[in-house]
């Protein structure tokens, strides 16, 4: 409490400009708290990353600190022996297909629900909203048997098709929100000029919705890359597993070789962490928009 009070006083006296790092006691307290949490959030990452380059013995004896000898072969072994080459490739396929599917379909439907005359629009909105509120478990069991009956189980499609379908409510509401924020007169002007509805959408309105589009791409990519329960249920063959699922089975297979396990876990998290560090503002804005706009 002392620190939050302190920061409040500070902000009002300094007047919301970037303050200098003064040596006042409240400031020290504030940075002590901020740094303590920095360590809490960062330490598990550093520990796993450094363990990825150590031997099992060194992990047990010297958990902190850099490896005495960098064992790059851990990463290499996880990549080949641990099948991470396959898992990462699978995840790339799933992400490409699902992100593309969700984005294209959500843009079309979100646009229609925002700006086109649609009979029974309110009823449709309620139906899609329901999909936003129910968890995956509400369809998990019958979906498994449906996919089995149409022979999609144990193929890439078993994750791709429901992976797209179940994310449509989120995508549609997000894109509808963005399209509703655009000036409808632009579309009308294009119609007066003789453009058909497809051209109005594709050439006039869609380019204006790019911020919404990139939000959806980032959001959906992260969601699909990390998704676990759906592939766990629908994809059981090892050569079809995405990296989230593969990591768990890899972990169960090689309990003794801890260096390699840490290397596998590092490989699993690295693509999304690097992407986050490169695009971190977009990630944070996307998450905020996704939470507050749907």
């Amino acid at each position: 409490m002392a620190t939050s009070a302190a920061s409040d006083r500070k902000t009002t006296t300094v007047g919301w400009t970037r303050p200098r790092l003064s040596r006042s006691a409240p400031d020290l307290a504030r940075y002590a708290v901020l740094l303590a949490f920095l360590v809490v959030f960062l330490l598990p990452f550093l520990w796993i990353w450094s363990s990825a380059l150590k031997s099992s013995r060194e992990i047990a004896r010297q958990p902190f600190g850099l490896p005495t000898e960098f064992r790059w072969q851990n990463l290499q072994r996880a990549w080949t022996v641990g099948h991470f080459d396959q898992y990462i490739w699978n995840s790339v396929i799933y992400c490409a297909a699902i992100v593309a599917g969700v984005v294209v379909l959500s843009c079309l439907a979100g646009y229609a629900l925002a700006l086109l005359p649609v009979p029974g629009r309110d009823a449709l909105l309620v139906v899609f909203l329901l999909g936003l509120m129910v968890p995956f478990q509400s369809v998990m069991v019958p979906l498994y048997y449906l996919l089995r009956d149409i022979h999609l189980l144990e193929t890439y499609w078993a994750f791709i098709v429901p992976g797209i379908a179940l994310r449509l409510p989120f995508g549609i509401f997000l894109m509808r929100g963005f399209f509703r924020g655009l000036p409808a007169e632009l579309a009308d002007a294009a119609r007066v000029d003789g453009a058909n509805e497809w051209r109005v959408f594709r050439q006039v309105m869609l380019p204006l919705a790019t911020p919404g589009l990139s939000t959806l791409v980032v959001f959906q990519f992260m969601f699909t890359w990390n998704q676990f329960l759906m592939p766990l249920v629908f994809v059981q063959r090892d050569e079809l597993r995405p990296v989230s699922l593969g990591t768990m089975f890899f972990f169960g297979r090689y309990t003794a070789d801890r260096g390699m396990i840490a290397a596998g876990v590092t490989i699993a998290m690295l693509p999304v962490v690097l992407l986050y560090l490169a695009l971190q503002r977009r990630f944070i804005e996307g998450i905020t928009a996704g939470a507050l706009k749907t």
Binding site: L38, L42, I48, S244, T247, F251, V273
Partner: peptide
């Protein structure tokens, strides 16, 4: 601070669980 505080959020639950 913001970058680090948010970083665990991008990890998959599987990775969080294993770590």
């Amino acid at each position: 601070f913001r970058t680090v505080y948010f970083m665990p959020q991008v990890l998959s639950p599987v990775v969080i669980a294993l770590v």
